[in-house]
Design a protein around this nucleic acid. Sequence first.
DNA 1: GGAGCAAATGCAAGTCACTGGCATTTAGGA
DNA 2: TCCTAAATGCCAGTGACTTGCATTTGCTCC
Lengths: 134, 134
Amino acid sequence: MLKQAGLRVTPVRLAALEVLRKAAAPLDVPKILAKLPPATDAVTVYRTLNTFTRKKMVHRVRGEDRSWLYAIGDMGPERHEHRHPHFVCDTCGKVECLQDAEIPRTFVRSLKLDDAYAVTYPEVVLHGVCPRCR
Amino acid sequence: MLKQAGLRVTPVRLAALEVLRKAAAPLDVPKILAKLPPATDAVTVYRTLNTFTRKKMVHRVRGEDRSWLYAIGDMGPERHEHRHPHFVCDTCGKVECLQDAEIPRTFVRSLKLDDAYAVTYPEVVLHGVCPRCR
DNA sequence: GGAGCAAATGCAAGTCACTGGCATTTAGGA
DNA sequence: TCCTAAATGCCAGTGACTTGCATTTGCTCC
């Protein structure tokens, strides 16, 4: 996979890929770092993930706390596309996955977007006040 | 307004409220700080805004990057509800407002959400690749 | 119109995610 | 095996934000 991208095969890269491969969900850098051997240099990991992103080996998505989360190719957007909306409570700041509600397949189309934009998936965040804060 | 919330009336608080009152859009702390008298202590402003948030005098919404934006009560979510979707390019990371596309009024209802959640506005972020990165 | 005190402030210092510079090491083609 | 560009590791720096603590200041109660 590294060779395919024209990158050298190095221990850090292999380890990072392995962590992402085993991950059940997209991870941010600190979480990745925690799963890597203790002596691993944080700077290298940041650079490694930037490289992976540039080479499109991983998907980089925004986390709820507005950090970047990384996920390996075949478990990227498709598997984690969050077909369900999220709910952000503007009082307590908590975020919930609304598993039950599904974003209609027709939704993106209904926006009548310019064809120049290639949408991979829609993210819906409902703002409001959660049951606990009302 | 401060007294109503059971807070003391102090110069920093008055100035911060004034800045938010005059703001056309939600601001993050650095931006607020820039509009305050030069000698204003950043720590105090952070604390002030946390206090305002706790007392529900301001709305705190998430910014595009990992930051909080603050807006005063009556120009909070309603006036800045971003009735239009946003587009995030997962290649270059840039965020755009898709002014032309409007989120259907019926959208939130169509999700058939639990009544316990009081939705003030829906935020839609389309992920994909922007025209420039294709 | 004080006096007293909790609340608010200001300053120093610390944390945390992340970046840039630069010397050293190393992968991998010749 | 050699050589070089690529990758790493370490240092230091940035920028947003927090914590601790001593000092100041609104505000209540006399």
